[in-house]
Amino acid sequence: MLEGLSSSLQKALGKLRSKGKLTESDVQEAMREVRLALLAADVNVKVVRDFVARVRERAVGQDVQKSLTPGQQVIKIVYEELTELMGGTQARIQMAAKPPTVIMLVGLQGAGKTTAIAKLGLAFRQHQHRPLLVAADVYRPAAIDQLHVLGRQVDIPVFDMGTETNPVDIVRNGMAEAERQGADVVLVDTAGRLHIDDALMTELEDMKSTIEPSEVLLVVDAMTGQDAVHVAETFHERLGVTGVILTKLDGDARGGAALTVRAVTGCAIKYVGLGEKIEPLEPFHPDRLASRILGMGDVLSLIERA
């Protein structure tokens, strides 16, 4: 699928003749293919429409670099815009001025929150921090067991109060426990929930106002399709998301949802998950994801050399 799109795109772009400046019809034709590539990568239709319009506007009339064909020039612009859109702000964890630094992970069911908690915890531990994991998912069967197993694997303590206490009380007590242990980072595992589940979204708001986290990270599965727009919008509106973790990028999904989420929330993608094994989360590289979304590795390496 990837190859197919890439080659059809290149064919269309190949039709563009070198003319010095990009004309409207040059760009028009190329952008039709770009649109298809973005949709096949699951970028939301609205985001695609805005993005295409924006790039078209920017591209028309631009000079074509000597070493590039007009088609390659358009791709260069598309690639730069994509990279810029997904990059921007520095993707670092905001540490609290006064420890502990509290980080909450939120998202839909099965996105990869609990796994990401363990991976984040491991990264902190390797940097000489003393994290505490807080088990605030009282709904999913064996969620607490899962966090305990992972906590043992990375040698980080886990705080839980079973499944009969409400999550707001759990996180409040978790903070006290962190102080008692001298933990300087508190990582809160929350239950997966639908953005339209008002009761559970309110619960998250209450947890947030109780522990005032430095970061509320939205965990998004890289395989997510068009609906990412609604998810990101609602989570951001209700919780003020501060960053995104994009999981399961070790698969072959092209990950266009990341662009959607970035576009709606304005939040940086801070880390990516690249496997089930508990290893430190990887930093996010906007340029790599941009070329993955476009699916045109060879054209891009050509452009880079230009």
Binding site: M1, A41, D42, M223, T224, G225, G251, D252, A253
Partner: peptide, 11 residues
Amino acid sequence: IDGTTGQNGLN
């Protein structure tokens, strides 16, 4: 298949 899955579902 997760209902929120995009085009990767076909793969």
